[in-house]
Simulated scan of single mutants.
Amino acid sequence: MGMPRPERPVEGADGVAERFAVELRALRQDAGLPYRNLSARTGYSPSTLSAAAAGHRLPILDVAVAYATACGGDEQEWTAKWQAAALSAATERLDDASATADRAPYRGLTSFTTADADLYFGREDLVAELVTRATSRPVTVVLGASGVGKSSLLAAGVVPALPRDVHAVVTTPCGRLRERLAEELTGHSTCVLVVDQLEEVFTHYPAEERAALVEGLLELADRSDGRVRLLLSVRADFYGRCAEHPRLAAALRNDQVLVAPMTDEELQAAVAGPATAVGLSVERALLAAVVRDARGQAGCRCSRTQCWRPGADAGVTCSRWPASPRPAGSVVRWCRRPRPRTPSSTRPRSG
């Protein structure tokens, strides 16, 4: 068995998240634990634990304490360390002129963008897999139900996690895909072309144009000597339509990644992580309620927003969560209850 790859160095040591990561890494090094063994002790995946000590952002409390105690750290001591780090991080954000005390931790029904990477939690395992595929395979197809979070996964998870020497272009199907890529490639040795909502080729283009666009996309990966790699997302209900194009069907057969509804662990991180990132606490009762009601469902993003109000307090609470118990599917119905109409030009996309 080969030696595990060394961790990338923590970039900088001035930030709160970076200093916390350095301490976690030192504890693991002293314990002599590979991430695989640490995962067995904590119940968290190796990629989740690795991300906790990456220094990009402060991990959620449960992951941080599990990491530390599995390496021989004291639970109370590391809980206090994390609380102090979270307070320092919140203070730093309040001192930043570009930030406000009322920054929303959640995006509601709006998809995450690359600028929201510090608020994107819960899909660390999938992000790690897609980064590996996107930098080593010509074509990867991301498949999932409408509303499961494919757009957010790609924009706020995968793109910010790509190596620094890899240039990313994020777009949706349009007639200038190849021309734009040629422009973006100037000065870059490697490019990952992320084409989100590929199903639009079936809804916006006649058959001949659609075939030309799909073939043109796949040819980019074939003829670029490895310079261009494709990361395509498509709604699961268009899976059968993809079979109309043999090369796209081959990509689905060999290189597809399914985005499933979040697991309990991922749901907890998706609620607690963004709150921690903006200096808020989350009631444990809320975590339990979200996991109970959102388990196995897609499209529940705005429910978290309802549990936070700007300027109210320093917590995300159950006070605005509908009374329990609720039957399966109620979270989705509650999130999709009638809201004021938004002009179509500004209506958020469903990711």
Rank of each mutant, 00 (worst) to 15 (best):
G2Y: 08
R5I: 04
G12D: 05
D14F: 10
E18A: 12
F20T: 03
A21N: 04
A21H: 01
A26E: 13
L27I: 02
N37A: 15
S39G: 14
A40L: 14
A40E: 14
R41T: 07
T42M: 01
T42G: 07
A51G: 07
G55C: 03
P59M: 04
A64F: 06
A66H: 03
A66S: 14
A68E: 01
A70H: 02
C71V: 04
G73M: 00
Q76T: 13
E77K: 08
E77L: 09
Q83Y: 02
A84W: 06
A89W: 00
E92I: 05
R93L: 13
L94I: 11
D96Y: 03
D96C: 13
A99C: 11
T100L: 10
A101K: 11
A104D: 13
A104L: 10
R107N: 15
F112W: 04
T113M: 07
T114W: 00
L126H: 02
E129Q: 11
E129F: 00
V131H: 04
R133W: 08
T135Y: 09
S136A: 15
S146C: 11
G147I: 03
S152A: 15
A155C: 08
A156W: 05
G157W: 00
V158S: 08
P160A: 06
P160K: 05
L162A: 12
D165G: 06
V169W: 00
T172N: 09
C174I: 07
R176D: 11
L177A: 09
L181F: 01
L181T: 00
E184K: 09
L185M: 15
G187T: 03
H188K: 09
L193N: 09
D196S: 10
D196V: 01
E199G: 05
E200M: 11
V201Y: 00
H204R: 13
E208D: 15
E208V: 09
A211N: 05
V214S: 05
V214L: 04
E215G: 10
G216W: 05
L217E: 02
L218Y: 02
S224F: 10
S233P: 00
R235L: 12
D237E: 10
R241P: 04
R241L: 14
C242P: 00
A243P: 02
A243G: 07
A249K: 10
A251F: 00
R253H: 14
R253I: 06
N254V: 06
D255R: 08
Q256R: 13
Q256K: 09
Q256G: 11
P261G: 10
P261Q: 03
D264T: 08
E265K: 10
E265N: 09
E265G: 10
E266K: 03
L267W: 00
V271S: 04
G273M: 05
G273E: 02
S281Q: 10
V282Q: 07
A285N: 10
A289E: 06
V290M: 14
R292S: 09
D293N: 13
D293C: 09
A294S: 07
Q297L: 15
S303L: 12
S303K: 06
R304H: 13
P310K: 09
A314V: 08
V316T: 09
T317A: 15
T317E: 11
C318H: 12
S319Y: 07
W321H: 09
A323F: 01
A323H: 07
W334N: 08
R337D: 03
R337L: 01
T342C: 12
P348H: 03
